[in-house]
Amino acid sequence: MGAEKHPYLFLLVFFVMALGFAVGPLILAALWAKFVSPQKPGNVKNSTYECGLESKGDAWVAFKSEYYLYAILFLVFDVETIFLLPFAVAFTGLSVGAILAMLIFVLLLVEGLAWAWVKGVLTWK
């Protein structure tokens, strides 16, 4: 062995090779497009793709996030179940402090549900 190798030298080699692997074909494709196969953009080609029909309006529209709210609410019950099951199993052997702590925890989650209910998230519009 000649010169000391840095223990992380292989990481650098990996990184350079991975970069070359990713960027190399892109550069080749760009060169090929520049010198051999010209790009031919056009109005129809660049327009929004919609099964051959002309698209009406803008494709950048806002989607309703209602389902997302439902998913978040699901988390309330999800977390609750994970903790309630062991809580129920060990219920008789628990100290008063532990039961109080657990009740506070459940209260916090129920609060989240109540808040969503009051806000009207639960009614699908």
Partner: peptide
């Protein structure tokens, strides 16, 4: 027209 548009795209 749709076929031609798809071809163009």
């Amino acid at each position: 027209p749709q076929v031609v548009r798809l071809y163009n795209q």
